[in-house]
């Protein structure tokens, strides 16, 4: 097999801060449970969607927490992120999400949906692991750069798994400025 030429290599290579530069299945639009439920009218789809909710909410929170902690780590240049009590709670929630994911069996047509949840779990797990090893030094910026890409990737997977009518949504609008009577 011939090597691709320089132009093709450059055009196809992601920048280091591109979230698609990380290995693994890519975030992609997938059929959501609500859509499939309408098509298939299946109890199994409804049960799957119900089981997803807790996992989705856990991952939403894990990603939110990690993002906030990453901002603070970056701005304060402090490495204690991995030792904070919030990180312990985050890790526990991530573990629970992993156990629930392992017990989640998608009906036909929803394997790709589950793969997106898996992706969110895997990449947020990379950030949790990296936080433990975060140490002050010349490479702290490089460590944070990689964690930034990983958390963006985790979010992209979770966003791909969103299905508002099935209760899988990023923002709780219940009491937001827009929460009018509809």
């Amino acid at each position: 097999m011939t090597e691709p030429d320089l132009f093709t290599r450059l055009a196809a290579t992601h920048k280091p801060d591109c979230l698609l530069s990380l290995d693994g299945p890519l975030p992609e639009a997938v059929p959501d449970p609500e859509e499939l439920g309408r098509t298939l009218g299946s109890d199994a789809v409804a049960a799957y969607a119900g089981a997803c909710r807790t996992i989705y909410e856990d991952l939403r929170r894990v990603i939110g927490q990690l993002s906030g902690l990453l901002i603070l780590a970056r701005l304060t240049n402090k490495t204690e992120m991995g030792d904070l009590p919030e990180m312990a709670q985050c890790r526990a929630r991530w573990n629970e999400a992993g156990q629930r994911l392992a017990a989640l069996f998608p009906p036909a047509g929803l394997q790709r949906h589950k793969a997106q949840l898996n992706g969110a779990h895997v990449f947020s797990g990379h950030v949790i692991a990296a936080a433990r090893d975060l140490r002050r030094g010349s490479d702290m910026d490089a460590q944070l750069d990689l964690m930034t890409v990983q958390i963006k990737r985790a979010y992209a997977h979770l966003e791909a798994a969103s299905a508002p009518k099935a209760g899988l949504q990023m923002v709780d609008f219940t009491h937001a400025c827009c929460a009018c009577a509809h």
Partner: peptide, 24 residues
């Protein structure tokens, strides 16, 4: 207590911090 905040906005904040475009 988490109402109306999108983790995605915080994720984008991480990117801003990396680019040194976020000041707390």
């Amino acid at each position: 207590m988490m109402v109306a905040v999108d983790p995605g906005d915080i994720v984008r904040g991480v990117g801003l911090a990396a680019e040194k475009r976020l000041v707390t």
